[in-house]
């Protein structure tokens, strides 16, 4: 199909979609109105389980099964990317670059060194308080994993490799996914439903509240942190250690 024909087909499709979308918008409730039936029910259910962050309550309590599926999607994607990016036999390993060759400004190195512990701390905080303040396992896990890569931005890939024993992070990811399933099975045994919130709810807005929500959030944080580190490691290895076909 040549480009002109492709643009024509796309133009027709896009115009049709735009018209249908405009018609659909005309039938929507007004923007910013106060009729949100799902909101009312979700907030009610979250407060019944003494969860201060309603979004976390939906993710890790009311619709925890969906989050479990999402975890498995993440796991599948990491496995898939690792399989796609493994070096082929035709590739040769590039000699390790001279550490002096890649000059990084001292200011960048300083900033990365200062920000590394701060970012890791913020990531842990976001995971630990996911049921109380905005955040949760997904967000905190990504902050943690990207925080570790500040070492790479600071120009010290060998240092990153030292604090990143890949097998450990692969283990962390699998253990995170498995830990997510464990309270789920406990819920099946005690509450009669997979991922039922069976732990005591505790006091509203305190660290030990919301039952299984912080446990699942922690499990997701470990899994996402491990998964993102493993994922980024595949791309970095591919870019830094292997040259193209020779």
């Amino acid at each position: 199909m040549n480009r002109r024909l492709r643009y024509l087909v796309f133009g027709l499709g896009a115009a049709g979609l735009a018209v249908l979308f405009a018609l659909a918008l005309a039938g929507l409730p007004g923007f910013g109105g106060d009729s949100h039936p799902y909101r009312d029910r979700a907030v009610h259910a979250a407060l019944a389980h003494r969860t201060a962050n309603v979004v976390s309550s939906i993710n890790f309590d009311q619709r925890a099964l969906d989050t479990f599926g999402e975890e498995l999607i993440l796991l599948g994607s990491v496995v898939g990317a690792a399989a796609l990016l493994r070096p082929s036999r035709r590739e040769s390993e590039r000699p390790a670059p001279d550490p002096e060759a890649r000059a990084v400004p001292d200011s960048v190195v300083l900033l990365c060194t200062v920000m590394l512990p701060v970012t890791v701390l913020v990531g842990l905080d976001v995971i630990a308080h996911g049921h109380l303040t905005p955040g949760g396992g997904f967000q905190g896990g990504v902050v943690l994993a990207t925080g570790l890569h500040l070492l790479f931005l600071g120009g010290r890939y060998p240092a990153l490799q030292r604090i990143r024993p890949l097998a450990g992070y692969q283990f962390a990811e699998s253990i995170g996914v498995a830990t997510f399933a464990t309270p789920g099975l406990a819920g099946l045994a005690a509450g009669g439903a997979f991922l039922a919130n069976v732990l005591p709810y505790g006091q509203f807005a305190s660290l030990a509240s919301a039952g299984t929500v912080p446990v699942l959030s922690l499990a997701v944080g470990v899994a996402v942190g491990g998964g993102v580190v493993v994922l980024l490691a595949q791309f970095l290895e591919q870019a830094l250690r292997y040259s193209g076909e020779r």
């Binding site: 907030v43 407060l47 201060a52 962050n53 939906i58 993710n59 619709r63 109380l132 807005a205």
Partner: peptide
Amino acid sequence: APVFSTSADTHRAVVDPVVQA
């Protein structure tokens, strides 16, 4: 935002947390 800090402000109107999730 659909995040409460004390049980006193739970009656306030919040945006829909379902679509945020």
